[in-house]
Design a binder for these strands. Structure first.
Lengths: 81, 81
DNA sequence: CTACTTTTTACGCCATAGCGTAACAATCGA
DNA sequence: TCGATTGTTACGCTATGGCGTAAAAAGTAG
């Protein structure tokens, strides 16, 4: 699962995929973040106008964090082994 | 340079460090993004209310992209060699 | 210390995120 | 097929981002 993102669409996709991988619903994320389901939906659909705080809250709920890397940057361990 | 971020402050720090590493001013980023210097300043200082579009624009100007990874996740190649 | 560059902050303005609430649409299991 | 869960969209509302513009504060070189 490659979760590289340069656009809001890609971030939304990554969040949705991770959520599904966890077997969770948008409602689950909503409960863990105090964000409305509608907000989660909007974010997953690539809303570039979303607030950074919103993205970070969902990331935290999913147990994710950001790495800021050079474009086309280094491989990760899993990509090799 | 470890650019892991879970908070707006950490993202701002990472963006500022990368910008400095490029030898650029906030004004340079402003020119490349059509965002005001004040907006860049606010973002680098950890404004969680910033729009995702704003973050992504600055990231692009710096030649960076996001990786969404598990918290405490995999090491990167540079961390080993 | 002085002049210049860089960064931070302020004010009025417009656009919009996310809220509560609600309805509608799409997806899924029995 | 159908009822139930899940996801999307809408309306009015308040709060605030980013804009133009401007000035002040902080940092830097001579």
């Amino acid at each position: 699962m490659n979760l590289t993102a340069r656009t809001a669409e890609q971030i939304g996709e990554a969040l949705r995929r991770t959520r599904k991988a966890r077997g969770w619903t948008q409602s689950d994320i909503s409960a863990r973040t105090n964000l409305r389901v509608a907000t989660i939906s909007s974010l997953e659909n690539g809303d570039a106008g979303a607030k950074l705080a919103t993205v970070l809250a969902v990331m935290a709920a999913l147990g994710l964090e950001f790495r800021l890397v050079e474009r086309g940057g280094s491989l990760e361990i899993e990509d090799i082994f």
